[in-house]
Amino acid sequence: MAGWLFCCCTSRGIDLRRVTQLSWNPRAFLYHGFLSDAECDHLVKLAKDKLEKSMVADNDSGESVMSEVRTSSGMFLSKNQDEVVTRIERRIASWTFLPEENGEAIQILHYEHGQKYEPHYDFFHDKVNQELGGHRVATVLMYLSDVQKGGETIFPNAEGKLQQVKDDTWSDCASDGYAVKPRKGDALLFFSLHPNATTDNFSLHGSCPVIEGEKWSATKWIHVRSFEYPPHATSANGCGDENELCSSWAATGECEGNPSYMVGSDGAPGFCRKSCGVC
């Protein structure tokens, strides 16, 4: 599947001459200059005054919880929030050949000195999160800033980790696997599932601690099925849920952990507003 995806001709603003295959196990590709400097700065500006402590999904319950495994701060944009965000989302769909509707809203992340995200998988271990769009099949990680040292994305299980040559410009953390340095405008695409839809243990990845400077990034998670639902149905009093699992998702903290989907924003109501108590 991946070989076919990346041998197609350039189209819709995608220049595949800028794409480098990093690994087949996991399937990972780096697009140099995927975003312009202006686009990077715009995404940072949208997020800067709205950051909150990043959460992780509990492996058993699916509940969003705080953890020292992930020490960054972040926030979710709204889908198609403005012209710039819409353009980026369409570009992601063109590059990955995965439908826009299968993607979550873009999450902006900020890492300060010493902050990190320990190695983890983007596919789910719990059934609750799998009900909403199924597993995450792919991740597009866009770097919005340069980092003087540290902050590398690392794949501890990658087959090519021993062949990658590193000098003293890399952090010690980066020596523990195949690593990618954050460069402003670059985008990293990697797959969490094999082409037969089974989970890929090679896709274990993390974010090394920032040593010098700060790191801004934008993440787009893409699922195997649509992450959207039909237009909102209206209950008798104008308040309702769009999925029978809304109450269970709300009980596990998804109103706070995934507000873009659950609660929504101005002009884009969420799908579980009743269970989240916002209407």
Rank of each mutant, 00 (worst) to 15 (best):
M1G: 11
W4I: 11
C9W: 10
I14A: 08
L16Q: 10
T20E: 15
N25P: 01
N25G: 04
L35K: 10
A38S: 15
C40D: 01
L43C: 04
K45L: 06
D49K: 05
D49L: 04
K53H: 04
M55I: 01
S61G: 00
V65E: 02
V65P: 00
T71M: 07
G74Q: 04
M75Y: 01
K79T: 03
K79N: 01
E83Q: 07
R87N: 12
R87D: 13
T96Q: 03
T96P: 01
Q107T: 03
H110M: 03
G114D: 01
H120G: 03
D122R: 00
F123K: 01
H125R: 07
D126N: 15
Q130H: 09
G133D: 04
G134V: 11
R136F: 14
V140G: 11
L141T: 12
M142A: 15
S145I: 12
S145G: 14
G151D: 06
G151R: 07
T153R: 08
F155H: 13
A158L: 10
A158K: 03
L162C: 09
T169G: 06
W170Y: 14
S171L: 12
C173W: 13
A179S: 15
V180G: 14
K184W: 14
G185R: 11
G185I: 11
G185P: 11
A187G: 10
L189M: 14
L193S: 13
T199Q: 15
D200K: 08
F202V: 05
L204D: 05
G206L: 13
V210S: 08
V210L: 08
E214D: 06
W216L: 07
S217Y: 01
R225F: 09
P230K: 03
H232D: 00
A233L: 11
S235N: 10
A236V: 06
N237R: 07
E244I: 02
W249H: 07
W249F: 15
W249T: 05
T252M: 04
G253A: 02
G253L: 04
C255P: 02
G257C: 04
Y261F: 13
G264P: 05
D266S: 10
A268S: 10
A268E: 02
S275K: 06
S275G: 04
C279W: 12
